[in-house]
Amino acid sequence: MAMNGGKPRLGCGRLIDDVWASIDQPATIHERSCRDCQSARAALDHLEAVTRSMRERDRGDAAQRPSSRVREAIMAVARAEVRRSRRVPLATTPLGTIDISEQALNDLIRFAASTLPGVRARRCTVLRSPTPQSSPGGPSSAGVVDGGDVRITLTVALSSQVRIPATMTLLRERVGTIVQAQTAITMQQIDIGVEDLYDA
């Protein structure tokens, strides 16, 4: 065997890559008479058989997965980071302000959208509205959404079986109604992007 241009070749000059590419096909006239090719085909065929066995075994083998401790550590970090999202004030009481995290509002909007048959909610973004009450040097409003002026952008995938215009109307109504019922927030604007169609 020799190396040529970084690609290993057999004694007969053929690239191993070429032997591999045709290994599931009957041997050619050359391969039937070439000892290099015959040996290479047998060796590669054997390697493929062992590799295939390993692939199949891996998929059902619990020992080939990380321990549950790893998943718990990853999810602990994920949940901690989610809790740091912006807040949307819902009401003010003598005891203080009641608010909801932007992430919880996103989850509620995706939930509301996905209750419609043929709609798969994807991303929801609460738009940042102008905040005239913020002033230079004053308290930062970066972590708060104006609860009286909530505007969202929602992307969805739709079933190819639904009529898009009618579904858009229903979708806006559904999201607006559920969010209003759950949080008392009246949506001021709902932009919807249909970014996929799926067969169903």
Binding site: S160, I164, P165, R172, Q188, Q189, G193, V194, L197, Y198
Partner: peptide, 21 residues
């Protein structure tokens, strides 16, 4: 595809691709 619908100050609707099964 696109559609502008009704609702609370309806925004844009854009349809851009076909999803996987």
């Amino acid at each position: 595809e696109s559609e502008r619908g009704a609702g609370p100050r309806a925004g844009s609707v854009q349809c851009t691709s076909r999803a996987a099964p």
